[in-house]
Design a binder for these strands. Sequence first.
DNA 1: CAAGTGATGGGACTTGGTCTCATCACCGTA
DNA 2: TACGGTGATGAGACCAAGTCCCATCACTTG
Lengths: 189, 189
Amino acid sequence: MGRWEPDARERLVRAALDLFSEQGYENTAVAQIAERAGLTKSTFFRHFRDKREVLFGGQDVLAELMTGAISSAPAEAGAVEAVEAALVATAETFTDERRAHGPQRLAVIAGNDELRERAALKMVGFAVAMTDALKQRGVPELEAAVAAELGVLAFNHGYERWLETGGDFAEVARRTFSDVRAAVGSLVA
Amino acid sequence: MGRWEPDARERLVRAALDLFSEQGYENTAVAQIAERAGLTKSTFFRHFRDKREVLFGGQDVLAELMTGAISSAPAEAGAVEAVEAALVATAETFTDERRAHGPQRLAVIAGNDELRERAALKMVGFAVAMTDALKQRGVPELEAAVAAELGVLAFNHGYERWLETGGDFAEVARRTFSDVRAAVGSLVA
DNA sequence: CAAGTGATGGGACTTGGTCTCATCACCGTA
DNA sequence: TACGGTGATGAGACCAAGTCCCATCACTTG
């Protein structure tokens, strides 16, 4: 793999996360991240589109899991059930190791505008992906959009809850999604 | 006002919009925008935080209108009614002149990742602002978040509809929001 | 052992964005 | 009319993000 040590990508992520925590995102240069990882700026940009992306790896995998679950949901399932299945399907990526960096990662993102911006784009990406997958099942445009948006909302709240409580993400996601449904019920009542 | 001609900010916006349309966002340098507006790079960054922001002026005013409407909604109004009032309250900013650039602006934004990212952040900003305003009215956290999210969804769809059909934005917003409510109804049924 | 492949190093280059200081128009006041 | 203050602008140095191109090295395959 690498010229000398393997796992260049993982090393870059760790170095970035640590440096961002130590000195802040904007006070950390890409060259510095690369240096700590034993690599160079060139290699960094070969692994990540830009400086922000080092904190958002694997988000495309999540989107694929979501759309896959929606597409393969039983025919009788409604839009809401399909979206719940989408959230549950992402559980396989939420490992203990990922949970360990979670809070650190969230803190860094919360402290910088560029990163909050990127996070927002990722969420829009999820919403668009789920909306399209729902429409392909025959769900009307607006209903699909609403269901997807509720799914993203539940996903975010569920993620934070999972970081606090731990356990199986699928379980937490189901509970959070159920709370969101209840909130919708209260609203329209 | 300006050293020579007035309306520096407006001139920059027009120059940027035209250049982005002509040659694309990423092929246009800030110095070039400033030059066409008869100004310099320095002045550009005095008016806008960054290159993207030149396309998103006035979004903070929108957020204030939204939160203001929610705060001053009648005490009997529920979360949903308050959010509807928030959308209607933004109508005063949607002038004919703004509608004229609308499609051009949307096309530029749709064609570039950085700009879609910024747009996403703006929408998150709306959602957070409305959520906070609703919580201050005593609406429970999750209900507030859901209502705000539905509001943003309706706002976006309403904006696009308004660009197509024209007329009073308040009217279009009310209709779109009603459609969203109907979609929610179909979902939970 | 030779050739090919893939990841890396290195450096030049453009541009976004910051910072500092000088300059000019305008306004009120003496 | 002359003066000083204020606010917006111009100009240029400077840093870091991101792109590009080419050389280099490790590893694999025949």
